[in-house]
Design a protein around this nucleic acid. Sequence first.
RNA 1: GCCGGCGUAGCUCAAGGGCAGAGCAACGGUUUCGUAAACCGUAGGUUAAGGGUUCGAUUCCCUUCGCCGGCUCCA
Length: 660
Amino acid sequence: MHDKEKSERFIFIVKWNNKSESFAQGSCFLDVKKAFGWKNNVLLIETLDGSQRETLELRETLERDYVVEPLGFGHEQAREALRHTASHILAQAVKRLFPDVRLGIGPAIEDGFYYDFDTVHGFTPEDLVSIEQEMKRIAKQNLPVTREIMSRGEARKVFEQSNETFKIEILDELPENEPISVYRQGEFIDLCAGPHVPYTGYLKAFKLLNIAGAYWRGDENRPMLQRIYGTAFMDQEGLRAHLARLEEIKQRDHRKLGKQLDLFSIEEDGGPGLVYWHPKGAIVREIIENYWKEEHRKRGYDLVYTPHIAKLDIWKVSGHWDWYKENMYSPMEVDDMKYLLKPMNCPFHILIYKGKTRSYRDLPIRYGELGTVYRYERSGVLHGMLRVRGFTQDDAHLFCRPDQLEQQLIEVLDLTGFMLKTFGYDEYYCMLSVRDPENKAGYIGDDDVWEQAEAALESALKARNLQYQVDVGEAKFYGPAIDINIKDAMGRLWQGPTIQADFTLPERFDIHYIGEDGQRHRPVMIHRTVLGAMERFIGGLIEHYAGAFPLWLSPVQIRVMPVSDKQSSYAEEVQKRFKEQGFRAECDLGQDKIGYKIRQAQLEKVPYMIIVGEREKQSHEISVRHRSLGDLGVMGIDEFIEKVRHEAVSKSLESVFDRV
RNA sequence: GCCGGCGUAGCUCAAGGGCAGAGCAACGGUUUCGUAAACCGUAGGUUAAGGGUUCGAUUCCCUUCGCCGGCUCCA
């Protein structure tokens, strides 16, 4: 072949990893994949040339020269492409089995994908099995997944033919200039922006997980569709690991552990969303509350207690009556006066502030309270201790001068980080929740006041070098907030601390302080919680620790168990020593064999088991077993106490004996 | 609130239009034991509540309550 001929036929050069290949007009990235010898674990292509990186499908035709990088399952977009294709395969399978369905939407999500269907047939778990089988068949057929750009009219015709009214609705709402793309695989066609993987055969490891109702476009005024959730991975091993993780999450469920460990309950006779703290759960809560109080005192907070109800009027002044009514319990009549159960503590703290004239020298004033509030939540959203109707916020309101605001916000951020770390939440994410500029009617206060508050929060985040994401429309009705999500041991995010700057309530309650100039000035308020609410925080902690609380929080820290009755009095003597040293220690004097006692203690996740038999009784020593480290051998009582005391006092997350 | 599923002994779970069952826990004994379950026995139920169909309902139907998975909303 002459060079001239070659250069005419091979017009594009693609470079990867210092290698380059030439391609003829009309080649696509599947050809590139072949040329470079990439395997089927390449799902998308990323271009490295050009000012902006671009991700492309393997079916994309070459249009110029490229420098590329293949993207595998580890890359978010590539992962989503595979799962998105999986959702199309799901829809195709469902349409084959249930021809009357109409399609909603079917995106990739965090851990998998879903597709929404409208059909009179109610999907059952048995259906999932047959749908999965059909999906496997489609994958085996290895249908090409192709993309077409259509005119609006053409697309409309296609979906009208198949009576896909939901697709038409989406189509009609696509912006004018948006190219309309449609994906096909075999007989299946879907309106979709992509990207996708090139063949259905790329789907090798997947599982359908559950069926749930979901409003069309998340709007409760629109029809409810049936959603099928599934997940997909590159290989069986990835899928297996994911399913194992789901199982682990199930085992850690605070509702399950709460019952097993006898920490709390929610009583059907008492009402939904109302938590009963059993003795062991109450100990955990009490310890956390004491710790909380101690840390707040250290930082200049004054702790207060306020009532559970107050006259309707103050809720009008605060704005709750107008902006928060649907979350509040109905008024109750007392002496011809209407009272409301409090959904928040702020107005009460303001009343205390307002009780006397404040000087600029008094500020900042920080009122902290473990304040129990009640909020009406729709029945369907309640969830164990994580979403309840009555809960205790670790609340505080800081009243400060405008010039103190940023420093106060920074101190709150520091306190938050400090306390979260104690519980082993080393990773957390900050969200700056601002109001939705499209919906100003949903918030109280003037524009300039909002801007001021949002700016203050942002500059505090910047001052502490915290990464944050702006969350539009997530502000509270009276002010913007920093909402902090904490990452637990399973890598899940939980709503935790929230910090709000508020210029509005001081205005509404007309509170002030006397400045250096002898004039009245308006203070700024910070609303904040560090843990969020005791219920939610401890519910999350149970899952974070899988029920195995670190020593300082364990309801029972040490259980002493005699091998037989003959050592009972020695066991009690040992227990007494522990109790004298301030440990929560128990004695198991049951008639059971030692193996049984150990099993019970293990199941209850008691950190330290002290086994005393005839040998220990004679030598005045103890045999120590740790719930996760196992048998630690025989040691002296004082030696043990000294070590374990250090573990408890330091609030260690690990055993002192866990040294390698 | 909405869609779907579920509700049987304190707990975990069977059975099912014709007398409601097991294991663990509880209780009474026997056993005195060395690092995750000794043995024997006893008791425990208006099958979530209410209504209907039926000779007969715990089972089938309806309503209510609660729980679970989601949707929507929050600490």
